[in-house]
Write a protein that binds this DNA or RNA. Structure first.
Lengths: 163, 163
DNA sequence: GAGAAATTGTCCTGTACGGTAACAATCACT
DNA sequence: AGTGATTGTTACCGTACAGGACAATTTCTC
């Protein structure tokens, strides 16, 4: 076994990733409050935007969460007027999930919030450095074995300090 | 307001940071189970290692958490035989927190776990790329305004999928 | 086709956790 | 000496998550 290194936490890539990831997520959560949704709602909406009519089960599987959680998420979205459960044309047990017009209006705003968050986070890096960082993170993410664009924190709301 | 970009989540730096940060933290949590502690315990131990005898209040302040949480953390550590509350020499209300010998044995093992986690995470990047990534993350962290080496997730255990 | 097994969405229950308020003991200031 | 502030702790409450159970339907098996 290699002997443990003496680096402080602030010089460890894994610690920095966790720290910054938590920081961004919290910030994003705060900024989304104005739109009346949470990050996991945003993730679900994004997923729905690229393919409607799927069942709750399919959605849950794609996002790596349990069906039960999807029930709650869709309850939220439906009450918020952003999604609707229609009858599934082929399976009368299942629901076909669709976005509403309101969702199509809100989604770009949420994306703009994400853009603003990213911009604020990356202040201090120039264009080249941003591209470098993005590319490196993509390589690491690729190797981590996670499905692309699926956030492991979807199983549960992201903790928001001081809220 | 700039128009929202159409990039998928997997091409957004903030999303990748959050995704990877969550991933590493979960992995670290899992790996730490063998040592009988959690990441927030680890953070506290690391902090204690570079200065014992402080009061719970001082520790809580340094780590950005509430006194009440520190009570629970120290209860855990004390029960685990890793820290002890001694009488404070100057203030009879306060406790002076010290590490035990067991902690001094365990801490390097925990650091080794962190090292192993980092190594696994960064497989796929060569030495130069690792240095680049670390430097970029440090710059971003510097600008984020967080105290160095303090994890915002200390206020609460990091969620561990599937546990 | 008829019955058995699996699937979908939902609900209920227990459990754990975070945050607020309150408390006794002690210190600091006047 | 007395009043207010500080330290550590406990009790309380509301929320969130995992597990199992459930009716309605589909799919498989014979």
């Amino acid at each position: 076994m290699p002997e443990p290194s003496n680096r402080p936490l602030g010089e460890r890539t894994n610690f920095l990733l966790s720290q910054l990831g938590f920081h961004t997520a919290s910030r994003f959560t705060e900024r989304l409050v104005g739109l009346g949704i949470q990050p996991n709602h945003f993730g679900l909406l994004m997923h729905l935007a690229q393919g409607e009519g799927r069942t709750q089960q399919q959605l849950a599987e794609a996002l790596g969460i349990h069906r039960k959680v999807m029930v709650g998420l869709l309850d939220d979205l439906e009450q918020r007027g952003l999604a609707e459960r229609r009858r599934h044309p082929a399976d009368r047990r299942a629901h076909a999930i669709h976005l509403t017009e309101a969702a199509r209006t809100l989604l770009p705003e949420a994306v703009a919030v994400a853009d603003a968050e990213e911009e604020e986070l990356l202040t201090g890096l120039d264009g080249d450095e941003r591209r470098q960082l993005l590319a490196l993170l993509q390589r690491v993410a690729e190797h981590s074995g996670h499905p692309r664009g699926v956030h492991p924190g979807m199983r549960g709301k992201i903790a928001m300090p001081g809220a």
